[in-house]
Design a protein around this nucleic acid. Structure first.
Lengths: 223, 223
DNA sequence: GTTTCGCCTTGATCTTTATCAACCGGACCG
DNA sequence: CGGTCCGGTTGATAAAGATCAAGGCGAAAC
């Protein structure tokens, strides 16, 4: 058994590329649609419902998840302000979407985004779908091969970047949501965050307000 | 409570030697491109290379995977005869593709599949991309929330269906590949298969030839 | 035919994470 | 002001799976 100290990575972690697709969303995608208010824990759409609409988060946040027959839940992704969700591989939703907090969405028919006769719109839809694919593949890598502390570090760095608040983040989700996203239990998430705080990498001010004190070290922890 | 040191994994991914000259020949069948022969463990494309081509498996099989900086490997998917791969979220490959066995592929430029001016081709490309997304999401659910035996059962049922040999399957991949696909170790995969055999659900004849004796029970095990 | 090598299996033990349980602290309420 | 509710934290213990180690088997090499 060889327990080794933290190694200097051979190849320094490269920050993920700028969120092209989200820029596309923010800058180019103006959904023509209806504004919709969803309160905390309310369902936006459920598994099995027809997937003919897309949603853009204006304010608040959403979790998209799947549930095994015995109740185990896996959150596929969180959707934050600016994100578009609801694009799915079939004409029926395979995931369920629920608001994390009181949330404002814009809803449009999917055809409003990806008409074949409109090259630009079609490219936008493609970019959104490919962004989903990229994130799902990243997620699978995390779930298959990263340790609990690597998962949590990854999560914090990703959220900090996506929420855009620099090194301060206000998490819109509970510990249980984080656990179900990272494939861990709520206790492991809690303990790992405590460890990160003890090691000086983060500082928690209330359980949803987290300051990244050593973003570089955290990034290296991501593996 | 203290930060735990990082455990350096025992098995690290080593890139195979550079490919020798590929034998390429034109394809007289109606498939859209050039036929390409790739021998076992040879790379089809690597991370960072331009992703402007798509590949269809004619014979053999391919693994698509990503590697963490310290060598941990996660196989995203296996591609079997009839499958199309190489569609990626950006114009650079994020995954590496290697032949599992001696493999025959047909290669085409991606534009040959998804020209915007061609509605049918565009829909085909969309369907392929959405299939990737669906499989990636299923994979994330498995990696995040299923136990080792559920993962292996899932894998067997999925492979049996995709390989099309009814309840008899000839696996084209090693135990290590299965382990890296399922987020487990080779030992756990081996033990789990043995357990399934002891419980009468499968019968192994040589380690790559598996007969599903109780497909229904296996399916229920999938969760 | 025998040796060798790579892959697989099995056993023993260890580590990580899950589970079970208790407690904490802020928000809301009587 | 005290009670209760709810999410979060912490502690003790258990379980699943990883790691370390040894041996087996079959295909290719000698």
């Amino acid at each position: 058994m060889q327990m080794q100290p933290i190694l200097v990575p051979r190849r320094l972690y490269q920050a993920p590329p700028p969120p092209i697709a989200r820029q596309v969303e923010t800058d180019e995608i103006r959904l023509i649609g209806v504004t919709m208010h969803v309160s905390r824990d309310q369902e936006v759409f459920g598994e099995g419902e027809p997937a003919d609409q897309v949603y853009k988060v204006v304010r608040g946040a959403v979790r998209g998840f799947r549930v095994l027959s015995d109740g185990r839940r896996q959150i596929c992704d969180f959707y934050l302000p600016g994100d578009v969700f609801g694009i799915e591989p079939s004409d029926e939703h395979r995931i369920t979407a629920e608001a994390l907090t009181d949330t404002v969405l814009v809803v449009a028919r999917r055809s409003a985004l990806g008409d074949e006769s409109d090259g630009a719109a079609s490219r936008r839809l493609w970019a959104l779908a490919m962004n989903e694919l990229r994130r799902s593949q990243d997620h699978a890598l995390t779930l298959g091969r990263r340790s609990a502390s690597e998962r949590v570090a990854n999560f914090l760095v990703d959220m900090a970047e996506r929420l855009g608040g620099g090194e301060n983040l206000e998490l819109p989700m509970s510990r249980q949501d984080i656990a179900d996203y990272l494939g861990l239990t709520i206790e492991t998430v809690s303990r790992t965050l405590t460890q990160l705080q003890v090691s000086g990498m983060i500082k928690m001010a209330g359980c949803r307000s987290i300051h990244l004190r050593k973003p570089r070290a955290l990034t290296e922890l991501c593996a």
